[in-house]
Design a protein around this nucleic acid. Structure first.
Length: 114
DNA sequence: ATGTTGACATTGA
DNA sequence: TTCAATGCCAACA
């Protein structure tokens, strides 16, 4: 008790849980994560969770916006960090500098299919 | 304490 | 078809 409730609410934890399940070389989008959580519209909050996840061991660099653009690359401590990380994992980029979702888009739940 | 912003997405007109 | 408004949750001013 006491007070301490420093840990974030379940929402953040759920987002982190999904992000932690993203396989290497794959990427997912905020909307798919939000949908997997059951909210579907809280994509913005998912972004917040990722920002918090920036200080966690979660592969937040595998999460991009719906266009496959590395929206949060600026929060990694370096604008090229995210891109370099994804490339290092075997992710392909388009001429637009976005991730090839058509080749690396991973959806939560599809992998849980026992 | 309240209001606004923010790593977005979806729906409505 | 394209443009605008709304929804969600948390942190910051």
């Amino acid at each position: 008790m006491t007070t301490s409730k420093q840990e974030p609410n379940d929402f953040f934890r759920r987002v982190w849980d999904v992000v932690a399940q993203i396989p290497r070389g794959k990427v997912t989008t905020y909307g798919h994560i939000a949908r997997s959580l059951g909210v579907g519209s809280a994509a913005r909050t998912v972004g917040w969770a990722l920002k918090a996840a920036a200080e966690t061991p979660l592969p937040c660099h595998r999460v991009v916006n719906r266009f496959g653009a590395l929206s949060g690359r600026m929060h990694f401590g370096g604008p090229h960090i995210m891109e370099d990380l994804l490339r290092s994992e075997g992710v392909a980029f388009t001429d637009d500098g976005c991730v090839d979702l058509g080749a690396h888009l991973w959806v939560p739940g599809e992998a849980e299919r026992t």
